Amino acid sequence: MSAHTRQMTRTPLQTAALVIGIIFLAVGILGFIPGITTDYGAMKFAGHQSGAHLLGLFQVSILHNIVHLIFGVAGVAMARSWTGARNFLIWGGVIYLLLWIYGLLVGHESMANFVPFNTADNWLHFLLGVVMIGLGMALSRGGAGRSGKGPFPI
């Protein structure tokens, strides 16, 4: 096997991070498409006043869509290395669990709901957090890049 072929081989961990990154990119783009995002004309830059809903369910704003795009770019970029992929999945999952808790504690009509979140967003954040952390932990068994080094040795 040539050095070039070895560099192109992705681990399941890297593939999972790449797929999730691509999904976030797609969601960020879809949030800017009228029809896929209902009440598109009611979209605000930020805040709970944004009346747009991705797939008619998830409240979105311009800021919310930009965050999805940035998260997607981070996932795709970090999937290039085993350690990066693991960090993206685990720490990204932690971020989403923190967003879930934040969404539960902050009222939907509160000025603190600046992204914005609704109930569907909150439970999606919980699911994303659990799945991302689960993938990061399950697919990284055996050590970082097979060397045993990394932020969470198993």
Rank of each mutant, 00 (worst) to 15 (best):
N87H: 09
P151F: 12
G51K: 09
S50Q: 07
Q59S: 10
G31Q: 08
I90P: 10
F58K: 05
H108S: 10
F45A: 05
G142K: 08
R10T: 10
L99W: 11
V131G: 07
W100Y: 11
L104E: 04
W100G: 00
T9L: 15
H64M: 01
K149P: 00
S140V: 08
V60I: 13
G93A: 03
E109M: 12
L135H: 05
G103Q: 05
M132D: 11
F45P: 09
F58A: 00
A138E: 04
Q59M: 06
L105Y: 08
L97T: 01
A17N: 06
H108W: 11
V94K: 04
H125G: 07
I95E: 02
L135S: 04
M137G: 07
I23M: 13
N87Y: 01
G28W: 00
A46G: 02
L99A: 09
G93M: 03
F117C: 02
V73R: 01
T15Y: 00
Y102W: 11
G145I: 01
G21T: 02
L97F: 13
T9R: 14
D121M: 07
G148A: 10
R141V: 08
G148P: 15
L139D: 03
I133R: 12
A79Q: 07
L98G: 09
G134W: 01
Q59F: 13
N113Q: 04
F24A: 14
P116T: 01
H68K: 01
M111W: 04
G31N: 10
I95V: 14
W91G: 01
L135Y: 12
G107R: 12
A74N: 05
V115N: 03
G56H: 07
L18S: 02
E109I: 08
T5K: 15
A120D: 08
G136P: 14
A46V: 01
A16I: 05
V60D: 01
G136R: 07
T119L: 12
M43V: 00
Q49T: 08
A79M: 04
N122D: 13
M1L: 14
L128R: 04
G31R: 05
S110F: 09
I70L: 11
L13I: 08
V60H: 06
R6E: 13
L105V: 08
L98P: 03
Q49G: 13
I154K: 11
R86D: 00
L89K: 12
H108C: 03
Y40H: 15
A144G: 14
N65L: 05
I22Y: 02
I90W: 09
F117G: 00
D39C: 03
Y40P: 14
R6C: 12
V60C: 13
Y40V: 12
Q59K: 15
H4S: 10
F117V: 03
A26W: 15
L13W: 09
I66F: 10
S61T: 01
L97K: 05
G129T: 05
W91P: 00
R6V: 10
F117K: 00
L99Q: 04
G31D: 11
A17W: 06
L13S: 11
L57A: 15
G129E: 02
S61V: 03
R80I: 00
M43A: 06
N118R: 13
L69T: 06
H64F: 12
K44W: 03
G107Q: 06
T9D: 10
F24Q: 06
L89G: 08
R80Y: 06
F45K: 02
